[in-house]
């Protein structure tokens, strides 16, 4: 989903930067609020960013015979809400743009919009809608669909910038989707599975923090202890 440096016309580059910026600003505010209201969850917030750091470094082979990478933004989106990931995802993209020549500064806005805005919002929306289906399935669907949505957004961004001379934006969209979306399906499944594993570990060891974030109900054992006192 990384649009390479200089590969969006200046007008598009500016437009996507302007579109993504308010989400990053809202994310900074949200992170400040989380740090003030629930300082005990700060390390978990950093860990959500760390998860995106690892996953977006892993180039994974796909059945299409090409490689792509997961994004890891679904975890933080379901735990802390989508806006925090606008900030953490943008930090990941900045690291890759500056040190790896992967993505770029002129395309940072567009890449942030797909990976750090659309991905987390789709993950969050799916999580909200699917939470009745059980925690694991909802987390899986949230992370997997958030990942797919990111790559579909990239395809739309490229189709808008580079319409096909014969078939227009629609034809270009099909072309870019055929590169990104199909390759991404098995990777989305992998990202969904890994996110469920991390959430399982958190449910086991960080139940208190998840309750603070109203991700999980208070534990039964704790309620019993409180009741006995």
């Amino acid at each position: 989903m990384h649009i390479m440096e200089g590969y969006l016309p200046p007008l598009h580059a500016v437009a996507w930067t302007v579109t993504a910026a308010p989400f990053v600003v809202a994310g900074v505010r949200r992170i400040q609020r989380v740090a003030e209201d629930h300082p005990e969850t700060k390390l978990l917030l950093a860990t959500s960013g760390a998860f995106a750091f690892v996953l977006s470094a892993l180039k994974i082979p796909s059945v299409t015979g090409s490689c792509s990478h997961p994004t890891g933004v679904g975890l933080g989106a379901v735990l802390f809400g989508p806006n925090v990931m606008a900030v953490l995802g943008t930090i990941v993209l900045l690291f890759q743009a500056l040190l790896l020549a992967h993505g770029g500064l002129t395309t940072l806005g567009a890449n942030a919009f797909s990976m750090a805005v659309v991905g987390p919002w789709v993950a969050f929306g799916v999580w909200r809608m699917a939470s009745g289906m059980g925690r694991s399935l909802a987390v899986f669907l949230a992370a997997a669909l958030g990942n797919l949505a990111t790559y579909c957004t990239t395809s739309v961004q490229l189709a808008l910038a580079f319409p096909d001379p014969a078939t227009g934006i629609g034809g270009a969209l099909v072309k870019f989707l055929s590169i990104f979306a199909i390759t991404q399906i098995p990777l989305a499944v992998v990202e969904g599975l890994l996110t469920v594993v991390v959430v399982n570990l958190l449910m086991q060891y960080s139940r208190d923090e998840l309750s603070t974030l109203s991700f999980a109900p208070r534990t039964a054992s704790r309620a019993k202890v409180v009741g006995a006192e």
């Binding site: 390479m4 082979p61 090409s66 490229l158 580079f162 870019f176 590169i179």
Partner: peptide, 12 residues
């Protein structure tokens, strides 16, 4: 197993 990002760049 080339990267999909690079393939999109080649198309452009």
């Amino acid at each position: 197993f080339s990267g999909s990002d690079g393939q999109a760049r080649d198309v452009i």
